[in-house]
């Protein structure tokens, strides 16, 4: 069966530039997850951490990569959630 063009979950690379996790013989998935969990790296005066994620853009769905906007001034705004009040 053909893959749906845009299903419920569309793969996106997530945080980019994180070193690939080393295969380690560990029986604890929690430990393994901790090893690969992205760490805080955003600092003023330093390059913005890049990422690729799913997005809702102009009425449609697409993947957006932060570095696609390189060369422009970017304002990246995080907010706690859709349908919140402030």
């Amino acid at each position: 069966m053909a893959e749906p063009k845009d299903g419920c979950v569309k793969p996106a690379a997530g945080v980019l530039g994180v070193p690939p996790s080393k295969e380690k013989a560990t029986s604890s998935p929690a430990l393994a997850a901790e090893e690969v969990a992205p760490k805080l790296s955003a600092r003023v005066g330093h390059p913005a951490p890049d990422f690729e994620v799913n997005a809702y853009v102009e009425g449609g769905f697409k993947n957006v990569k932060l570095s696609d906007y390189k060369g422009k001034w970017i304002v990246l705004c995080f907010y706690p959630g859709d349908f919140t009040f402030v």
Binding site: R43, A48, W73, F78, P80
Partner: peptide, 15 residues
């Protein structure tokens, strides 16, 4: 959740 955070990134891709 991601709390309210706002980042200005310049054309050279620096925060």
């Amino acid at each position: 959740v991601d709390i309210r955070g706002r980042f200005i990134i310049d054309p050279d891709f620096n925060i």
